[in-house]
Design a binder for these strands. Structure first.
Length: 281
DNA sequence: TCCGGCCTGCTC
DNA sequence: GAGCAGGCCGGA
């Protein structure tokens, strides 16, 4: 589930669930979510959570007494709240709160990562230092986007997903933002005009805002295991008619990932300015 | 720059 | 039973 909006929702849920309540016990199972001595250090996390921040797809936990935790949900990780004694499949780690609730880190595929480090070192970690700007935290204008992504020689969508250029977009939201901006995923970044960048920056904001709205609340609305309906505009809609122009949505592979595109709304050739409207925010 | 690997579950 | 999946890393 986790791209920027999903991780941000996870953060907000955790803040709500935990609030001022103390973590009375932290437990970690022996999985590759933890490396080396991390498991033991995880078990030492206790007390209040003083802050819970997000950078890109990472969550930065600051506990009292200077302890910290860097968490990444990977592909299938998520935090869920359960009552004490209630089993949770694929639970890999747990925070027991003083009110008897338990926050589980559930991760069937074990692609998530938990790295306990001193809170003062969280922001200095290479994983965080190397991130590009976070559209939600740092803002994102057309020129800023052009500066971050425009120098890439990879395909536009691949460049958008490069966390070192822009932090937070993954396969789904990159495809959705490009559709909203009317830009083909295989465009080369150096062919975009300032207008294109501006439209794309707005589309990224709109895509993130949509993701946040869709998933507000305790239970994720989409991308849940099994089949909630597809709320996206092009992602996962190969062969279906485009919601704007009715021509069939296509899919192809870019850098090993499936990309969805409406070839009519997102022509590969740069358009003459003003000829056709983008599908809209 | 691409490709497989990491894992398991779900859909076709 | 094969193929596919939201992320990321490392090797060729």
């Amino acid at each position: 589930m986790p791209e920027l909006p999903e991780v941000e929702i996870a953060r907000r849920n955790l803040v709500r669930w935990i609030g001022p309540r103390r973590v009375v016990k932290a437990e970690a199972d022996d999985t590759r979510v933890f490396r080396g001595a991390e498991r033991a250090r995880f078990s030492a996390l206790k007390g209040r959570v003083e802050s819970l921040e997000r950078r890109g797809k990472y969550l930065l936990w600051t506990f009292e007494a200077g302890r910290g935790l860097l968490a990444h949900l990977g592909m299938t990780g998520k935090f869920v709240r359960r009552q004490k004694g209630q089993p949770e499949p694929y639970s890999r780690a747990r925070f027991h709160l003083e009110d008897g609730t338990v926050i589980h880190f559930r991760d069937p595929r074990l692609f998530g990562r938990m790295e306990p480090v001193p809170a003062s070192e969280l922001r200095a970690l290479e994983a965080i230092q190397s991130l590009g700007r976070d559209p939600l935290e740092d803002g994102l204008t057309g020129p800023q986007l052009a500066e971050a992504v425009g120098t890439s020689r990879q395909d536009l969508k691949v460049a958008l997903m490069d966390q070192g250029r822009l932090a937070g977009l993954g396969n789904i939201h990159a495809a959705e933002a490009l559709f909203r901006a009317g830009l083909h995923p295989a465009r080369k970044p150096d062919t975009l005009t300032p207008e294109d960048w501006k439209r794309l920056a707005r589309a990224i904001h709109a895509t993130i805002a949509f993701g946040l709205e869709e998933q507000e609340g305790e239970e994720p609305v989409y991308l849940e295991d099994g089949g909630a309906e597809n709320v996206f505009r092009v992602y996962g809609r190969a062969g279906q008619p485009c919601q704007v122009c009715q021509s069939p949505v296509e899919s192809f592979t870019q850098a090993g990932r499936t990309t969805h595109v409406c070839p009519e709304c997102q022509p590969l050739k740069a358009q003459r300015p003003g000829r056709k409207r983008a599908p809209g925010r």
